[in-house]
């Protein structure tokens, strides 16, 4: 990727870091051309850059986390599948007339273990994104997911879902073909599968569109992914009557992995490489693979009935309210 393209994909808060790095590069080139030894200074500046990077990435605002979660170079479902499986074959279609490209799924092996993996698929570039509808699934996508999960349950394959969608598709046809019904059915059916289900938010967890493949025994989130009841911009438009108040809404909605862990809605946060998953996709994939394997290891020790009961109890506990004296 050339320099100008790289810069286009820099997020605002990364700019001081990028400036520092380009200065280091300049000094290095200058020194090489003039045959001067500046290795000490460069060493210092590099240490400074590392420190700056750590500072920036350890104190991101929710809106900045959202930007990272939506980063165009962030690894997608297919990237992770390619990186973590020994073998994998994509399976297509909902058997009701459609094959939604915004949801991909298939069977394969993870460290020798047969698995079903499915997830939302965003595009890798503009053209691909248009084809994938930016990862916004249609009813057919949720029905394909359900069909594959039923298949997995019959053949005793654990179900691994990767969540990465801005929202379920809000279009005329989506409504006509029952977007609400498709998501609702998945929510109910995912409670009746005996096989282990592990759901991981790898990027953007966009409301009901995310939850439609998000009911599991273990719920995991990458460190810089987000999960929200509504897109912060939409929420700002409704509650603040001002779509520009997105950052405020992102703050108020508690959408970061840390927040959701403390609300008891997530089990595990997967640490990302410094600079986010896209700065080192292989490392991020390794973390994902290890976490999936250890979750499966625990879950296989239980019976199907135990898993279902525990899955029920897990979601049954979600919610915070008080009981007042009558």
């Amino acid at each position: 990727m050339n320099d100008s393209k790289r810069k286009l994909q820099l997020l605002d808060f990364e700019k001081p870091l990028a400036e520092l790095e380009s200065r280091i590069e300049q000094i290095r080139t200058l020194a090489e051309n003039n045959d001067v030894d500046v290795s000490d200074q460069i060493h210092q500046l590099e240490a400074r850059a590392t420190q700056l990077r750590q500072e920036i990435f350890s104190s991101l605002t929710p809106m900045q986390e959202l930007q990272l979660a939506r980063h165009p170079r962030r690894p997608s479902t297919l990237d992770y599948i390619q990186a973590i499986t020994d073998e994998w074959m994509e399976l297509h279609g909902d058997r009701q007339g459609t094959d939604d490209p915004a949801v991909v799924g298939g069977v394969g092996k993870l460290a020798g273990q047969p698995v079903l993996i499915l997830g939302h698929q965003k595009g890798r570039d503009t053209k691909d994104n248009v084809a994938r509808n930016f990862g916004m699934a249609s009813p057919g996508g949720y029905r394909k997911a359900l069909r594959l999960m039923e298949h997995a349950n019959r053949f005793n394959l654990p179900i691994l879902t990767f969540i990465d969608t801005p929202a379920a598709w809000a279009g005329l046809e989506a409504e006509q073909y029952g977007q609400g019904e498709a998501i609702a059915r998945n929510l109910r059916e995912m409670f009746q599968f005996d096989v282990p289900i592990v759901c991981t938010v790898i990027g953007e967890g966009g409301s009901g569109g995310a939850l439609g493949i998000g009911v599991g025994d273990r719920l995991m989130m990458f460190e810089h992914s987000i999960y929200s009841v509504a897109p912060p911009e939409a929420c700002a438009a409704i509650l603040w009557r001002d779509a520009q108040k997105g950052p405020k809404a992102a703050d108020a909605l508690k959408i970061t992995a840390k927040d959701l862990l403390s609300l008891g809605l997530m089990d595990t946060i997967l640490p990302e490489p410094m600079g986010g998953a896209h700065s080192n996709p292989i490392e991020a994939a390794q973390t994902l693979k290890q976490s999936l394997l250890s979750a499966l290891d625990e879950l296989w020790r239980l019976s199907g009935q135990e898993r279902r009961d525990l899955r029920y109890d897990k979601f049954r506990r979600m919610g915070i309210f008080t009981q007042i004296a009558a």
Binding site: V215, Y227, S228, K254, I255, L263, M318, G319
Partner: peptide
């Protein structure tokens, strides 16, 4: 109530 509300759908 943010994500707590979303999870009521599953519950």
């Amino acid at each position: 109530e943010g994500m707590l509300s979303l999870m009521q759908m599953a519950k």
